[in-house]
Simulated scan of single mutants.
Amino acid sequence: MNNKILGVDIGGTKVQVGVVQDSKVVKKIKFPTLSGASKEDIIQNLIQGIESLGTESYDGIGIGVPGLVDEKNGIVYDLLNISSWKEVYLKQHLEDHFNIPVKITNDANVFALGEKIFGQGTQYSNLVGITMGTGFGMGIIANDELYSGSFSSAGEIGSIKYLDKTVEDYCSGKFFKNQFDLRGTEVFERAEKGDAFALEIMEQFGQHLAQAIKTVLFILSPQAILLGGSISQSFKYFEKSLWDSLKDFPFKRVTDQLVIKASNMENIPILGAAALIVSENRDHQEYISKNKSVKP
């Protein structure tokens, strides 16, 4: 490997592309997603964005998308907020153009794998990454490997029914909007100023998140849960209520060893996408083993 990888994060409103070398993003760009354009025009816009970073030699391109993915064939389905991307053979298009390997998965899987390869998850063989922003996503690392299931949809517990709606309605930005007509950033800013109402909202959020985490513990029993997305920045305001609500979990040995942390990684969407290529390298287990001795 020449140790340069392209990481790509395709969102409904913007695309981020970065060059990852020696576990760092050394160069990156951001440009709007042509969400209303044809799938061909969006692909061409992506190619132009990648090429704008230079014509260096790369080991591969890793991509995270907010939708379903046939990972083996690199087919993207039903991409969120991009109406024309119902079935896109993205891997084939990019490999034909750049002549390097391309790996694609769901963006929540990218977060979990990025933390596993580059972040606070290196010392854990079994971990879960939860992203909380506009929506709720989850990625799974089992026995040091990404487990993504069929169409990269494993772990998407946000659609599970909870109370009168779903887990996502109570464990993402939808909670603040639907229950209090506030944006998550507003609640965070008010909590920073000691606003009692905002602090109460955050406490409630932690209680709801704990119920989702109980489901995770029953099914996967991970060593660690790492929180990402914009809401994770508010972790200090709902951490106590979350742990208080986990006290009634029936398997105390599981919760006693459990670590829950907010991600502290910059550029995690780009790094996580690049981690898809790193994980394909035969030496990545050696990399993980070396980093397991590093304390978080």
Rank of each mutant, 00 (worst) to 15 (best):
Q179A: 06
I260V: 10
N281V: 06
F238Y: 05
G12N: 07
V17F: 15
L6K: 02
T185L: 06
Q257K: 01
I277C: 08
G129D: 09
R282G: 04
A262T: 00
K161R: 12
Y162I: 05
V110M: 15
K39N: 04
G194Y: 12
A191K: 06
V69P: 05
G194D: 08
G228C: 05
C171W: 02
S230D: 11
K165V: 13
Y170K: 07
K116F: 09
D144K: 14
M138K: 15
S232A: 10
F98R: 01
F98T: 01
E203G: 05
K292A: 13
K4C: 03
F98A: 00
V15M: 11
I288W: 14
F151P: 10
K295L: 11
I100D: 00
L276I: 07
V216M: 05
I61L: 01
S234Y: 04
M265P: 05
I140G: 09
K295G: 08
Q211L: 01
P269R: 13
V15F: 11
L276W: 12
D283S: 11
R282Q: 08
P66G: 02
V128K: 15
S172C: 07
P32L: 08
K30M: 14
V216D: 04
K193E: 14
T185D: 04
G137H: 10
P269Q: 10
A142G: 06
I10R: 04
K290S: 15
G54I: 04
L209V: 07
A273Y: 09
L246F: 14
S234Q: 05
L79S: 01
N45R: 03
H208P: 02
K177M: 10
S150P: 10
P66D: 00
F238S: 02
S38D: 04
R253F: 03
E145M: 12
Q233D: 03
D164T: 11
L46D: 04
G114A: 15
E189P: 03
R282L: 07
T166N: 12
A191L: 07
I75A: 03
L220E: 06
K177R: 08
S159E: 10
Q48W: 01
F31Y: 15
L227S: 05
Q223L: 03
D248L: 07
S150G: 13
K193G: 13
H284C: 14
N264I: 10
P66T: 02
I270G: 05
E168Y: 09
K116S: 13
M265K: 11
K161D: 10
F188K: 13
W243D: 08
T134P: 13
M1F: 00
D244Y: 14
L146P: 13
D248Y: 04
Y124F: 12
D164S: 11
G272C: 11
G49P: 00
K161I: 12
I5K: 03
L127Q: 09
Y89T: 08
